[in-house]
């Protein structure tokens, strides 16, 4: 097979192969550096590739720079006074680094923020309607049906204020809300954070279904490597603003370092850092 392609390459088929490779790539991050407030460098040359239709997981401990990576993609660095200073980000072959969130979301990239950022004083259904912002004016009834189909618990709570929902309901709500936008690339930041194990399992099953049924490409940031690697095709491990490891998810699961640090199966099993989640309240107010 490989032989055939190589020999065909001498003809004009080689070009076809290259093109196929390009079309296969949804997102390409090439050697980016991210700096906050002009002085705090957080990402130091990060490269990663997300292929169409895949689930890619990005693992790493607290403070590694995972959220920053997602925000570099979604354009949400700007309100926090962060900037991609080097490298480039291409989505479907188009450069998007430092584009505005309005433009990036309209290309189909939707980020589900860390820590379940619901609209407290809006009802569950109103929260879902905000998800239609990129498609303002288009019908959304069918999408509501779809979300309620994935998350029947939300249907029962649709008139309740989101501020009064439980953690599990909220995680469903924020994922459902993102689905309303018809995402091509869905970025999930720590969806398992602070949820009971049974609920985590349920959420991850639905994430997997979304990948398969909605033809959405997914990037899942997690400290819960075990869960993330079960549904992922490919995985990256990040430390101190750098990618230190990458491979097929199955392979990553077997990697001794990953086992020790992230799967907690080694004797030391240091899975403590789970809970000490920091929230960055000091982000610059963006009027």
């Amino acid at each position: 097979m490989l032989n055939f392609l190589q020999s065909a390459g001498q003809g004009g088929g080689g070009k076809k192969k290259v093109q196929f490779m390009e079309n296969d790539t949804r997102l390409q991050i090439n050697n980016i550096s991210v700096v906050y407030s002009d002085v705090i460098q957080v990402l130091k040359g990060v490269s990663l590739t997300i292929k169409k239709g895949q689930v890619v997981s990005l693992l790493g401990s607290n403070g590694a720079g995972k959220t920053t990576t997602l925000k570099a993609i979604s354009g949400l660095l700007k309100p926090e006074n962060g900037k991609v200073t080097e490298g480039y980000i291409e989505y479907d072959g188009e450069s998007i680094q430092n584009s505005s969130p309005e433009d990036i979301t309209r290309k189909g990239i939707i980020q589900v923020l860390e820590g379940r950022q619901e609209f407290k004083y809006l009802t569950v259904e109103e929260n879902l309607r905000v998800g239609t912002a990129t498609r303002w004016g288009k019908p959304y009834q069918k999408d509501l049906g779809l979300v309620y189909n994935y998350f029947p618990a939300l249907l029962a709570r649709k008139k309740a204020l989101a501020g009064y929902c439980s953690g599990g309901e909220l995680q469903m709500l924020v994922i459902g809300r993102a689905l309303m936008a018809h995402p091509q690339l869905l970025l999930l930041d720590e969806p398992s954070l602070g949820l009971a194990p049974l609920l985590v399992k349920e959420i991850f099953q639905i994430i997997k279904r979304i990948n398969q049924e909605q033809e959405a490409t997914l990037m899942v940031v997690e400290q819960n490597a075990n869960m993330a690697l079960q549904i992922a095709h490919y995985g990256y491990v990040m430390e101190n603003g750098k990618i230190v490891l990458e491979s097929e998810a199955a392979e990553l699961r077997e990697n001794p370092d990953v086992k020790e640090f992230y799967l907690g199966t080694a004797a030391s099993g240091a899975l403590k850092s789970y809970k000490d989640v920091k929230a960055y309240k000091r982000r610059k107010r963006w009027l």
């Binding site: 309005e102 980020q111 912002a133």
Partner: peptide, 28 residues
């Protein structure tokens, strides 16, 4: 109305609204 709900979402949680593509400047 959708615009009305977008406006309330910005008042409620601005970064979440931005992450969903709500045109925050238009809301202002």
């Amino acid at each position: 109305s959708s615009q009305g709900i977008y406006m309330r979402s910005v008042a409620d949680n601005q970064s979440a609204a931005l992450s969903l593509g709500v045109h925050v400047r238009r809301v202002f």
